[in-house]
Write a protein that binds this DNA or RNA. Structure first.
Lengths: 250, 250
DNA sequence: TTAATAGTGTCTTTCAGACAATATTAT
DNA sequence: ATAATATTGTCTGAAAGACACTATTAA
């Protein structure tokens, strides 16, 4: 193709060694009150038998589509079908340090996904296994995936503050307590139940009532909860701020 | 190289056509109370004679280094030398739609830079010209650079709220009024002078006093201003919130 | 003298957070 | 009955925003 030749010929080819572009996905969910991340076990070198974020090469598709495809392959679900239809997916950041992959220059576009509780994944593609792992135990990952995961977690924590993202972690209809459990799992800190309840209902467009209630109260008693679904707000105003840790400010 | 061969052989090569990785930089500054972006005029096709964001191929270097290098080439300044030492540079997002470059698949990692007022750039590299352009007039750019610029502006507006980023737009010593002019230029809205003044001084670590004042008052009168330098806070707490536009929330 | 602007004071409203109170339900 | 939990009420202090006021300086 001539246009491509002209393009490449106008630069010193040795100055631009081949580069591979991949996507990696930090997929988060809350299971039993604990924040989990989707990991795959690597079948071959490098980092054989180590856990890693799901990901793979970008094909003739948009970056967003590549991330969605990789995620669907690992979870065994097709996009738009089942719970993945409600999935939230956004670009996180791009990691391209020379040497981050020992084989060649690989630039990886990382994505962040939030899903309601999903079934255990099946192994897909070249991965030996796949599992939802509590984020506390997701350490020692392959490549620079520890850093990518850390960045994803920080993004998730921040986005809970000023967007209605928490609703992406719960089913279509949910109680305020379920929403509160999401904040507790992601922030690692239980918000005050009474204040949280009033706050959520007072933010315009965060949630809207279904008029229904749960079929029964909690396991150890208590009244039935009202059910809500996600509202139409894209930003929470005023925001639900995390308690400020003084040391994180400086 | 055998490791690379194994790597590439394990995939269908026709499924992964060659990809180029570039960086593009949205460099912002405030000149005369107006927000400007650094643009270059393209010398050849595609988009010949159109304006574009400065950028280029990533070499054997980190993505951050590539962005800094491209910026230095366009401004004619070397990193760490002169005002570029105080430059703030952060990754913005990555753009990789097939077809965004008509010649071949190009994945571009966009960066956002904030600089104090800099001299007019010299043309560098293959660019026919380079200039600081008011963001209002930076439309009809090459490739998908209109969208990248829009994303960069939104990021800049948001970051002024909760980080001390505004200090990256002013010289090392500055007055509260100069800082206010940055917010006015980026937000397109003049904060209330009295409230802004009190607010900036009340946020811990935002600015610290130098004990000095300006040599003289304003051009049309008024007292001398006290001078401040940037403080040690990395986050503003509480934040300086933009007036919420109701329509942007939904 | 006049106009402009830095910096401060004051008041109102909103909101976060602590804590209490009430109502409902499983065991 | 008892314990747990949803939901609501009340109070305090922080903070935003409107507005007024004083002091200082260039022209």
């Amino acid at each position: 193709m001539s246009a491509e030749r002209d393009f490449l010929d106008s630069y010193d080819p040795t100055a631009f060694p081949p580069v591979a572009v991949t996507v990696d996905v930090v997929a988060l969910t809350v299971r039993g009150g604990v924040l989990h991340v989707l990991l795959v076990e690597r079948g071959g070198p490098p980092f054989a038998d180590r856990w890693a974020l799901p990901g793979g090469f970008v094909r003739e598709e948009t970056l967003d589509a590549a991330a969605m495809r990789e995620l669907a392959e690992e979870t065994g679900l097709r996009p738009g079908e089942g719970p993945l239809g409600a999935l939230h997916l956004e670009q996180l950041a791009t990691y391209g340090d020379p040497g981050r992959d020992p084989r060649m220059r690989v630039v990886s576009v990382a994505y962040l996904a939030f899903a309601p509780s999903l079934p255990d994944p099946r192994a897909g593609g070249d991965a030996a296994g796949a599992a939802w792992v509590p984020v506390d135990r997701a350490v020692g990952l392959a490549f620079d995936h520890d850093a990518i995961l850390a960045d994803g977690l920080e993004r998730a924590r921040a986005k809970l503050e000023y967007t209605p993202l928490a609703t992406a972690f719960v089913p279509g209809e949910f109680t305020i307590a379920e929403l509160r459990a999401v904040y507790a799992a992601v922030w690692g800190e239980e918000p005050h139940a009474g204040n949280f309840h009033r706050k959520v209902l007072s933010v315009p467009g965060f949630v809207e009532s279904t008029g229904e209630t749960t079929g029964r109260g909690g396991e150890r008693g208590g009244p039935r909860s009202r059910l809500y679904r996600s509202g139409d707000a894209r930003l929470l105003h005023p925001a639900l701020l995390r308690p400020a840790r003084e040391d994180s400010v400086r």
